[in-house]
Structure formats: C-alpha cells, structure tokens
C-alpha cells in the first residue's frame, strides 16, 4: 500500500479519473439526447443505465493499471470531487455516487483477493458494481416504484453496459498498455 501510493501514482490516478470524466463529458449530449428520446415513453431511466458503464469506467481501469487495493475507491472518489468542481450535471449526488461506485467496483476485486486482473476479475467487478449501484438507484432514482419486468430490463441493461465499458473496453485499453510495457 505504502509503495503503490507514492506521489507520482496519486497524480496519475487523479489524472486517469479526470480523463474518464472529460471523455464522458465530451459525449454528454448523448445522455441528454438519449434521455429526451426515451422521455415520451417514460423510459428515461434507460439512458442512465445504458451509459452507466462510462461513469464507472475509471474504477476498473485504475485497478487494472495499479493492481493494488484501494485503486477503485480512490479513483472514483477523487474523480467525483474533481467532477463536482468542474460543474457536473448531478451536483452533490456526484460525490455520494462516486463513493458508492468506488466501493462497488472495489468489492469485486476484493472478492478475488486482488489476484485476478483478468476475465474472472472483470466478471466479479461487473457483478458487484451492477448489484450495488442498482440498489442505490432504487432509492435515489426511485426505481423501487417501477414494475418488476421493467426492473429486470433495467438491471440487464445496466449489467451489459458495465460489462462493455468497465469490462471489455477496460481490458482492451490495459492490453494496449501491457503491450507497450507500461504496466506488467
């Protein structure tokens, strides 16, 4: 722990969350237009669940790069603080959300004892992130009022999104970094 979190790595970790934040904000119009399209059908929450993978991407990415306990939580919390000051769409909810997503993603790596930075780790972190953030949204975004089949659909959408962005995309990026000998 002491060795991993030196000054350089802390800066790098924060920069990675900032990068994910900037790339996500640059495509913020996708969320808004998707949300607008779905609103007349009362399906706006799907916009949230389709894109959630992008929100949580910093966490698995940081874990795969640093391969150390705490990377997920730190990247999400630091990222959300920065995001709030840059003027995110969600205000105070950004910070709580960041903390919860960080814990959710971290738990996936904890369950595999921080040894599986491969597909097993990805599946585990996808599952924990999906379940925990879904429970949080039951309260925060009022998912609990929806019917059961809508909930199931939302859950599956969320899982696929997290798997694509937090899993496949993260894996592709880390593969590129490994090939260029940046990380082991």
């Amino acid at each position: 722990m002491q060795k991993t979190w030196n000054l350089r790595n802390i800066i790098l970790l924060t920069l990675i969350s900032i990068i994910c934040g900037i790339i996500f904000f640059a495509t913020g119009f996708i969320y808004n237009s998707l949300s607008l399209m779905l609103t007349p059908f009362g399906l706006a929450p799907f916009a949230n669940d389709i894109l959630i993978g992008l929100w949580i991407m910093a966490a698995p990415l940081a874990s795969f790069i640093f391969k150390a306990p705490g990377a997920s939580i730190l990247s999400e919390v630091l990222g959300s603080v920065v995001e709030m000051f840059l003027g995110g769409q969600w205000g105070a909810a950004t910070m709580i959300g960041g903390f919860i997503q960080g814990i959710a993603s971290e738990l996936g790596f904890t369950l595999t004892k921080y040894k599986h930075y491969d597909w097993i780790g990805i599946i585990s972190t996808t599952l924990t992130t999906t379940i925990i953030t879904f429970i949080w949204d039951c309260f925060k975004n009022g998912y609990s009022a929806y019917s059961i089949h809508m909930l199931i659909l939302l859950f599956i959408t969320r899982m696929i999104s997290i798997f694509i962005f937090g899993g496949i995309l993260t894996k592709l990026v880390t593969n590129m970094l490994t090939r260029s000998n940046v990380i082991k």
Partner: peptide, 15 residues
C-alpha cells in the same frame, strides 16, 4: 432533461 425524464418515467411506469 434528467428531471423531466425521471418525472415522465414515474408518470407512465410508476406513481
């Protein structure tokens, strides 16, 4: 946009 979206979603599919 998120506020209207979430309101419409509850209007149609919730309370």
């Amino acid at each position: 946009i998120p506020a209207i979206g979430i309101y419409a979603a509850q209007l149609i599919n919730g309370s």
